[in-house]
Computed example of a mutant assay.
Amino acid sequence: MASEDSVEIERKYDVDERAALPPLDELPGVARAERPVEQQLEAEYFDTAALALAAHGITLRRRTGGDDSGWHLKLPGGQDTRLEMHEPPGNDPELVPPRFLQLVRVHVRDRPLAAVARVRTRRMLHRLRDDHNGILADVADDRVQADRLGPEPRSLTWREWEIELVQGSRELLDAAEAVLAAAGGRPA
């Protein structure tokens, strides 16, 4: 997989374990919701010991599983928007791609980057399509286990829903928010 950059437009919602994902094929412009596909994702998140990247809303991770295995750097953008950059996984899981190091150097200075968290996600991915079979959005129903690494390890589990636009509009994002909120989703 070659390096690639994209603008990510998404919203995430915390949800109770027993909540049912509502029907999505009635959202405006959605002709059908595909049957969900299960994905197993594992990621290590990298930062300084003082979490300098997280303090600036920056995410740096190396993930396996799903459609986009490899390194991901996410930089804050506008509302619901982040610039997402991808690089191939490489051979060394600890070797951050040089391009990403250059971009975050202003925040980390000379402090080393290391894995600070390990996250495992069981994702049920629902693809929303239009009348011409175009992909409007992906809706993920995630069950997440996160382990904080380092001197004070800690584990957390939670469930969240995520809707990420592919070719859909912000109107679809707003309509989905209303439907997900009515089913118990709370902005994450």
Rank of each mutant, 00 (worst) to 15 (best):
R129H: 05
S169G: 07
A2H: 15
D138S: 06
E38P: 04
L53K: 06
L51G: 07
E17V: 13
G168M: 01
H107G: 04
V96R: 01
L95V: 08
L73Y: 02
D14Q: 12
M1N: 13
A33G: 09
G78M: 04
Q40K: 14
A114I: 02
E17K: 10
L75S: 09
D14R: 15
E152P: 02
R111E: 11
R62W: 05
A31T: 04
A114H: 07
E44H: 14
Q79A: 11
E26A: 14
I135C: 11
E160K: 03
S69D: 13
L156Q: 15
A55R: 14
P89G: 12
G77K: 03
D138W: 03
E164C: 04
D147E: 15
P22E: 08
R170E: 12
R18K: 12
E42H: 10
R127C: 13
P36S: 14
H132G: 02
A54H: 09
R11C: 09
D68W: 14
Y13T: 00
E94V: 07
S3E: 15
M124V: 12
A181K: 12
G70E: 01
A31K: 04
D92F: 08
D131Y: 02
A20N: 11
P112H: 04
A43N: 15
T64K: 08
T48W: 03
I135T: 15
T59S: 11
E171R: 12
V30F: 03
D147F: 07
L149N: 10
A20R: 15
W161I: 02
P112V: 03
A137C: 07
K12P: 01
G168Y: 00
L173A: 09
Q167A: 10
L73P: 01
R111Y: 05
E8I: 09
D110E: 09
P23Y: 05
R159N: 12
Q145D: 08
Q39V: 07
L125T: 07
E171C: 04
M124T: 14
I58T: 03
A33E: 15
T121L: 10
G134L: 05
G168F: 01
P112E: 06
Y13N: 01
Q79I: 08
Q102K: 06
